[in-house]
Structure formats: structure tokens, C-alpha cells
């Protein structure tokens, strides 16, 4: 087993102009490794949604991409307010985004459900006031 490939990028709070850049960058990286398109697509969606969560709620944070021989792992860390009711946040359509963000067309309440849908494993470590750490895993070979 060789060392995993690790990429890390900072995400700034409320920077809607740059939002999506991490997703594009990570996706290009995965494509250049020759990974199959559906893996790249799933990973890009996970990264994009997680990145948006950091932009909207997290007050900035770090996005990390890890590639290993059998899986791609996406880690999103922020020092934001944390998620009060995780079960509620996982529901489609539930959003705690403020009005001005919804007016920008974001905050539809699809972020976490979308991440869950596009990853094989999802771990969220969060508590009010403690920030949020999200880890999503996509396996390269589904039969495992």
C-alpha cells in the first residue's frame, strides 16, 4: 500500500464567487489520475456541497482530498457553530441558511442529503459551538 495522496485547500467564509473552485480543482485532479467518470462526478458533488456548507455556515475552513488505491476520502473541517440536530439536517429540504443566502439561490436544504447520496460512507462529528468535521468515503470498487 503506497502513501495516500493528500490535497488540502482553505475555504473562505461567505466567498460565493470562489465557491465551487475546490470542487473543480479536486475533480480535475481525480480525472488526471484516470479515475472513472462516475467516481469523479460523485466526488465533485460531495466536495461542492461540503464546500458550500463551509462557505454558508462554517465561517471558513479546510477541504481535504485523500486518494488511496481503493478509495477517495473527502474531509471538510470548520470551526463554525456546529449542527444542533443532525437528524433534522440530513432531511431533504431542511435548511438553516439565513434569508440573504437563500436569496442568492443557495440553502435549499439539499446539501447533506446530496452528500449522503453520493458517498458510500459518511461520518459527521459535530456539536453546538464545536464546529463540524465531515468525512465522506467513496470506494473505487463497489463490490468490496
Amino acid at each position: 500500500m503506497s502513501e495516500p495522496l493528500v490535497l488540502e485547500l482553505q475555504v473562505k467564509p461567505l466567498d460565493f464567487l470562489a465557491a465551487g473552485e475546490t470542487a473543480t480543482h479536486f475533480k480535475e485532479t481525480l480525472k488526471s489520475l484516470g479515475l472513472p467518470p462516475d467516481i469523479c462526478r460523485k466526488a465533485a458533488i460531495v466536495v461542492y456541497e461540503a464546500e458550500m456548507n463551509i462557505v454558508i455556515h462554517g465561517g471558513g475552513g479546510v477541504m481535504c482530498l485523500q486518494v488511496e488505491e481503493d478509495k477517495v476520502t473527502i474531509i471538510a473541517k470548520d470551526k463554525g457553530p456546529g449542527i444542533e440536530d443532525l437528524e433534522l439536517a440530513m432531511k431533504e429540504g431542511y435548511s438553516s441558511a439565513p434569508d440573504f443566502i437563500r436569496e442568492l439561490g443557495f440553502g435549499a436544504g439539499m446539501g447533506l442529503p446530496n452528500i449522503k447520496k453520493n458517498s458510500d460512507e459518511l461520518y459527521i462529528d459535530t456539536a453546538p459551538g464545536k464546529g463540524t468535521k465531515l468525512r465522506a468515503v467513496i470506494y473505487l470498487d463497489k463490490r468490496r
Binding site: L5, L33, E69
Partner: peptide
């Protein structure tokens, strides 16, 4: 791709 398999491609990257 950068290498013929994932391990080699990761090395190249």
C-alpha cells in the same frame, strides 16, 4: 492519465 494504473498515476501526481 498520468500513469498506467492508479498507484503509478498517484506517484506521478
Amino acid at each position: 492519465p498520468l500513469g498506467e494504473d492508479l498507484v503509478k498515476a498517484m506517484e506521478k501526481l
